[in-house]
Design a protein around this nucleic acid. Structure first.
Lengths: 222, 222
DNA sequence: TTAATTAATGTTGTCGACAATTTAGGCCTA
DNA sequence: TAGGCCTAAATTGTCGACAACATTAATTAA
C-alpha cells in the first residue's frame, strides 16, 4: 500500500528526513487533521527530536503546499476545500499534460513495454477485485509517465511537490467509485498515443483524463 | 529596476526573510556564482546572522530550485546549463499557458483595461529607447497575466518558485536582442484573446510566445 | 457592563555550542 | 611512485536556552 515515492537510494538519511516522512505521512493520511495547527514543541516531544528538525520538516512541507506558515504565528495544515481541489487539478492538467507530451517524445521502447505490462496487470485486477485498482494502480500509472518525461525539474515538481497534496485529497475524500474501468480505457489510449510518438495527442488525452477525474471528484463534493 | 515581486504587504518581516531576499538576489544576479558552494558559516558571518537563519534561507532557496542540497555535504547554487534551460521553459510553457487560459476566463474588465494600458506604455518605450523593454517590461506583462489567473497555487508556483530561476537565466545569459518588437506583437495578440475570453487561443498563443522565446535564447547558447 | 489597556502566558525566532559526518592531508606500504 | 589507510581539520546536523513576538487573561476606567 505504501509505495515509496521518495528519491532514489542515494545518500544518508538524516533525522530530519525521517521526521519529514513521518509528519508528511500523518498529514496525507489525515492523522493530523487538515486545518489544524502544528505546534513545534508538541511535535518535538511527539517525535522525540529537537525543535530544529521539526522546523526544517515544516519548512519542507511548505514546499509541497501541505502546510502554510505565518511569521511569528506558526504553521497550519492546509485545509481541503473544493476551490483548492479545482486549483490543484488545473495545475495537474497543465503539468501532467506536458509530461505526457514529453513522455511520447522521450520514453524508451523498454519503458513503453513496461507500461503496457502494467496495464495488463491492471486489467487482470479489474476483472477480479474491481476496487483495488484505483488507489495504487492509478498513482503508479501516472507516476511512470511522469518519470518518462525525462525532465528532472518537472519530475521534481510533480513527485516531490504536487503529488502529495493530490494523494491527500484522494485519501481524505475517500476516492474510488465507478470510474475504475473508464479510467482504465483512458490509460490505454494514452499509452497508445505514446507508442505512436504522437506528442500532441498524448498531451490532449492526458489532460482530458485528468479533467474527467476532476469532475468526478468535484461531483462528490457538491 | 528592482521590482519587488514578493508577497503582498502582509505581516512582519523576520530576519530570515531579509536574509533570504539578500541571498536570492545575489544568486539571481550572479554575485554568487552559479555552481558554487554555499558555506553556512561563511554566509553566516557575511550577513551577520546565525547559522540557523542561513539554514532556513537555504531551505527556502531549495524550493525555488535555485540551490541543491546534499545531506552532510552542503548546498550548491544550481548550475546553468542548456538542458536545464530547456527543461525550465517546458515547464513555463505548460504553466503559463494554463495561466493565460485561466486569465481569459477570470480577469476582470478593469484588469484587462490595465493590461492594455501597460501595452501602450511599452509601445511608447519601444519607439523611444528600444532596449529597456525586454527586462522589466516583459516580466511585468507575464506577471500580470499570472496574477490574472486567480489560481493561488499556480500563482505561488510561478512567482515564488519558477520565476526566480527564469530571471537568473535571463540576467546571467544577458538577454535582450532583436526579439523586442516581435515579442510586443505577441503580447498584443495574447491580450486580444483574453479580451475575447477565448481561453483556447490565449493558452495556445502564450505557449507559442514562450516557445519562440526559448528558441531565441537557445540559439545564443549554441 | 463594556471597552480599552496592561500584565501574564505561551509560541515562534534566533543564537551559540556540541555531536556526527565528510573531506583533506600526511603517512605508511607495496 | 602509486595506492590505500589513518589521522586531523572543517563542515553540516542536532540540541537546549534565551529573546522577540502574539495571544490570552486580568484589571481598570468610562
Amino acid at each position: 500500500m505504501t509505495l515509496n515515492y521518495t528519491k532514489p537510494i542515494e545518500q544518508a538519511i538524516t533525522s530530519s528526513d525521517k521526521t519529514l516522512l513521518s509528519i508528511r505521512y500523518a498529514i496525507v493520511e489525515g492523522d493530523i487533521a487538515s486545518g489544524s495547527k502544528l505546534s513545534e514543541t508538541e511535535l518535538s516531544t511527539k517525535y522525540g527530536v529537537s525543535r530544529a528538525v521539526i522546523r526544517e520538516s515544516i519548512n519542507r512541507l511548505e514546499t509541497c503546499h501541505l502546510v502554510e506558515r505565518k511569521a511569528n504565528v506558526g504553521a497550519r495544515v492546509v485545509s481541503l476545500t473544493p476551490d483548492g481541489l479545482i486549483e490543484l487539478y488545473q495545475i495537474r492538467e497543465s503539468l501532467e499534460g506536458m509530461a505526457a507530451r514529453l513522455a511520447a517524445k522521450n520514453m524508451t521502447s523498454e519503458e513503453i513495454a513496461e507500461l503496457n505490462q502494467l496495464l495488463e496487470t491492471h486489467a487482470e485486477k479489474v476483472k477480479q477485485e474491481g476496487s483495488y485498482y484505483q488507489e495504487a494502480g492509478d498513482v503508479d500509472f501516472h507516476y511512470r509517465i511522469i518519470l518518462g518525461c525525462k525532465n528532472k525539474q518537472l519530475i521534481s515538481l510533480l513527485v516531490d511537490g504536487i503529488y502529495h497534496l493530490v494523494r491527500m485529497y484522494r485519501v481524505q475524500l475517500g476516492m474510488s467509485g465507478p470510474r475504475i474501468t473508464t479510467a482504465f480505457d483512458e490509460h490505454k489510449s494514452i499509452v497508445r498515443a505514446i507508442e505512436n510518438k504522437d506528442e500532441e495527442l498524448a498531451e490532449m488525452l492526458m489532460r482530458r483524463h485528468i479533467t474527467y477525474s476532476k469532475n468526478n471528484i468535484a461531483n462528490k463534493l457538491a
